[in-house]
Design a protein around this nucleic acid. Structure first.
Lengths: 236, 236
DNA sequence: TGTTGTATAGTTATCATACAAATCATGATA
DNA sequence: TATCATGATTTGTATGATAACTATACAACA
């Protein structure tokens, strides 16, 4: 049995998160000052500051000199910066996509078979958002992810939803980095949109097998595009 | 135009990343010491430490007291969140099993198709463990879980492995609680063992379709047994 | 030869203190 | 009321000291 030895700064990190939770702090609320926190936990300012640094890097808080630290609007997707993705290799992303295919094709089938009218109209709204993003000439990561998550939600299986969300947000973070390097994928966006539309149509019609098929093709194409753009990036 | 005022600690953070990149440092390599870094960038140790904290939190490096900071293998797998649910609701267990079916049937197929001889002999060892547990008249949760995880591992997809492990450990927790109430499942254990054996055989033969089928039946039977024992518990 | 104990230097983790810089709050003044 | 000055508060950085830990080398021992 390994002896647990955790850095004080990381314990403080956890405690501050707990604190935010327990006090039900909303975005905009001010945290106690560093001095107060250090007294609260009986440590010096140093580990408190390191904990706050990590919190800020994770997007949970913002510290302003003289102003204090305030909790921030936390969209789960920017939980940790995309910085570390410079070091992931393409194989990992393909593994991620492979796992997404396994989960999301079945999610699509279940969505078609069990989705309520509400679920389906939500999916439709997400589709509209994607279209809008495209009109605005934005890439629309968030909208894409939201579309996929909405389909998972229509499966009526919270565990499945959670698993899918886990992977899609991870994918977004990873892909966002790789797209920074080469933007030459925009011409494919029309194709992606029509894939999305076909998935939605199958779900709306309640055709599980077809929904699964369309999702399968859609994600396999994503694989291909990723490989292609990654190779391009390597050769540049 | 507002002057960009960036905290020194975050500039140091960026510079250290650059440094790792430029020096082409591999996982396992040691970073310069904090003292050296602070001299390198002409700042005090304080911001250097805060930068290192963030680096460590984002999984790029590990700092060990007395040992220095080393760059770490960064894999997407480390970034998957642990699913934290604390439920015992029967509906959730069925959802959990449904998700396991989706993932693990494909995992079994991939294990049959891609598993190395080492992987397969590991699965065999896990099977032996289950048998041994049964001989000792133990229930053998751990052995069961280990068997399923080993199959996932043989898929050669770390993301899939992690996802499966997430669900199996969750399942273990849930089932361990619910089985406390009714132990009347022991007579089915022989059947479970033969299911496990059939899964293994299919994987060993490299028959992906059959492996998937066997896993499917195995988990569906688990569903049935759970429903049955749950109903029993309700009527008692 | 190989293992175990010990000494030593190097390194990180934390503490305490001080000061600089930005922000905030208060009240005076126009 | 609105604006500005000013002092208090708070974060950012610097510095030095101490404790705890690691890695290494070397001696002692079996």
């Amino acid at each position: 049995m390994k002896i647990e030895r955790k850095k004080v700064s990381m314990q403080v990190f956890d405690r501050i998160k707990e604190y935010i939770h327990e006090e039900k702090m909303k975005p905009g609320d001010r945290l106690p000052t560093e001095k107060q926190l250090s007294e609260m936990f009986g440590v010096s300012r140093t580990p408190v500051r390191e904990a706050l640094s990590v919190l800020e890097a994770s997007g949970l808080t913002v510290s302003k000199q003289g102003g204090g630290s305030i909790v921030q609007e936390t969209s789960l997707t920017n939980l940790i910066e995309e910085t570390q993705f410079e070091f992931v290799d393409s194989k990992e992303v393909l593994n991620l996509l492979e796992t997404r295919i396994i989960l999301e094709t079945e999610a699509a089938r279940l969505a078609a078979e069990r989705g309520t009218p509400d679920d389906k109209s939500q999916i439709k709204r997400n589709l509209e958002e994607i279209r809008k993003a495209q009109d605005d000439n934005r890439v629309g990561y968030k909208e894409d992810i939201a579309f996929h998550n909405a389909i998972a939600k229509a499966s009526q299986n919270p565990i499945l939803v959670h698993s899918v969300e886990n992977l899609t947000t991870l994918y977004e973070k990873a892909i966002r980095f790789s797209l920074k390097k080469n933007m030459g994928v925009s011409e494919k966006r029309a194709q992606v949109l029509s894939e999305h539309e076909r998935i939605y149509t199958a779900i709306r019609m309640g055709n599980g097998d077809q929904a699964k098929d369309e999702m399968d093709q859609h994600l396999r194409n994503a694989c291909k595009k990723f490989k292609h753009s990654f190779d391009q990036a390597l050769n540049s």
